[in-house]
């Protein structure tokens, strides 16, 4: 990688290039393990005691393609029954993780409703979305065939589909990084001209992304909280 590029990034990082991204995790019913996913992602491995009541409990800085991003995660865990609340969260979210449990078909079916709500609220067909089949460690209890989930992913404009295990910490970071990448890309597309709606196919465990859109430039409006 060219030296100058890296240096300019360094410079940026020192000044402002920490962008806040809001990620929203949703599932209609509890029990799909999304709070575990969040907790696993947010807390460092060696923290032995997790306190969710402090301001930074749902915040984490990650590096995506050389950019430092601060992800703030809105997780409705525990308040699934406050259905009216959901919209409030959704409005704030810039990217969405739709989590279901691979052990429950109904949890998958519920995602459609969520997605429609998101589309409606964001008034946008290309909201960054990642579909997450959690509890991949419970393979023996699998109720959702992979093909089914992939089918859904295709129908939804090739939204990436990952299978994760919060318990084994498998694919946890990948999910968030992928989503974050989508948000960043969408931001830059939006500020150019959003004429290219076709998204690249993104399969799970994809590590070979091109880095063509990584030119250092001023970011569009990022939500600073």
């Amino acid at each position: 990688m060219p030296r100058s590029n890296g240096e300019s990034f360094l410079l940026d990082a020192n000044i402002t290039l920490l962008c806040w991204e809001l990620v929203f995790l949703c599932a209609i019913t509890g029990g799909v393990g999304k709070s575990c996913l969040t907790a696993q992602f947010v807390q460092n491995v060696w923290i032995e005691s997790y306190d969710p009541t402090i301001e930074d409990s749902y915040r984490k800085q990650i590096e995506v393609d050389g950019r430092q991003c601060i992800l703030e995660i809105l997780d409705t865990a525990g308040t699934e029954q406050f259905t009216a609340m959901r919209e409030l969260y959704m409005k704030q979210g810039q990217g969405f993780l739709l989590v279901f449990s691979i052990t429950s078909m109904s949890s998958l079916n519920e995602l459609s409703e969520l997605r429609e709500q998101i589309m409606r609220i964001k008034d946008d067909e290309n909201v960054p979305i990642v579909i997450v089949g959690n509890k991949s460690d419970l393979e023996e209890d699998r109720a959702v065939p992979r093909a089914r989930a992939f089918g859904l992913s295709q129908n939804w404009g090739n939204a990436p589909y990952y299978e994760t295990s919060a318990r084994r910490r498998a694919n946890v970071n990948e999910v968030f990084i992928d989503l974050c990448r989508q948000i960043i890309r969408k931001d830059s597309e939006g500020s150019r001209s959003s004429s290219d709606p076709s998204r690249k196919r993104e399969g799970p465990n994809r590590h070979d992304r091109k880095r063509d859109n990584r030119r250092p430039r001023k970011r569009g409006p990022c939500v600073i909280l």
């Binding site: 509890g30 393990g33 709070s35 575990c36 969040t38 907790a39 807390q43 032995e48 005691s49 997790y50 306190d51 969710p52 009541t53 409990s57 997780d75 409705t76 865990a77 525990g78 308040t79």
Partner: peptide
Amino acid sequence: LTDLTFVDHGNQ
């Protein structure tokens, strides 16, 4: 409710 859920799921 959210806090309680996360205390429950985020701590061994």
